[in-house]
Computed example of a mutant assay.
Amino acid sequence: MAARDEGLGAARVLDADEVQGVLSGRFYAPADAAPARAPSRASLEKPTHYKVICISMYTKDLGRLDQLVDELKARGMTKANRSALIRAALDQLDLDKVPRGM
């Protein structure tokens, strides 16, 4: 196929009016028109029912935590994850049994 025939194929696929509408509305908008922007993160409402935190854990403890999560998943608790397991442990915590020398 010759190079000039390829250009004709594109012209048959693209509707000139549609192309002009896209170009005039988006690429050639007046300079004083402000582009539409997504709301900034600061303006979005932040969830109040949880907070994202960062904690340090020994790799050995993380490994155990992951093993326990895997065991729960194997038992059919498909939504088990680190956070859920830690929350469950907190619910069962007996402060009188916590070692003094933590």
Rank of each mutant, 00 (worst) to 15 (best):
G21Q: 09
V22R: 11
S43A: 13
E18G: 10
V52G: 02
T48H: 11
G76I: 08
E71T: 10
I53V: 12
G76Y: 05
G76F: 05
Y58P: 11
A38I: 03
S40M: 02
P47A: 15
A33H: 06
Q20D: 07
G25T: 02
L14K: 08
H49D: 15
V52I: 12
V69A: 07
Y58E: 15
R12S: 12
L68G: 00
S24D: 12
L62N: 10
Y50F: 14
S40W: 01
R75I: 01
Q67R: 13
A34C: 05
I53N: 00
Y58S: 15
P30Y: 02
S83K: 01
Y50R: 14
K73H: 12
P47F: 07
F27C: 08
A38V: 05
R82D: 03
L65R: 08
M57D: 04
I55C: 00
I55R: 00
A10E: 10
G25K: 02
S24Q: 12
T78W: 05
S43W: 00
Y58A: 15
Q67E: 15
A42W: 00
A80S: 04
L68N: 04
R26V: 13
D32E: 12
D17T: 13
R26I: 13
F27S: 07
L44K: 00
A10R: 14
A29C: 08
D17L: 10
K79V: 03
A29W: 04
G63L: 13
A31K: 06
M57C: 11
A10Y: 13
D61R: 09
V52W: 06
Y50I: 01
G63T: 14
K51L: 12
A34R: 11
V22H: 05
V69S: 07
L68K: 07
R12I: 08
D61H: 14
V52D: 05
G25W: 01
L72Y: 08
D66H: 05
T78D: 11
M57S: 07
E71Y: 10
Y50V: 07
K79F: 07
L62Q: 11
Q67H: 11
N81T: 03
A16Y: 04
C54L: 04
R41A: 07
R12K: 14
N81Q: 07
K60D: 15
R82G: 02
I55W: 00
L72C: 09
L23P: 00
Q67A: 14
D61Q: 15
A34N: 05
A10N: 10
D70V: 04
E45I: 00
Q20H: 09
V22G: 01
S24F: 06
R37K: 15
V22K: 06
T59Q: 13
D32V: 03
Q20R: 14
P30V: 02
A29E: 09
N81D: 11
H49E: 13
K73L: 09
D15K: 08
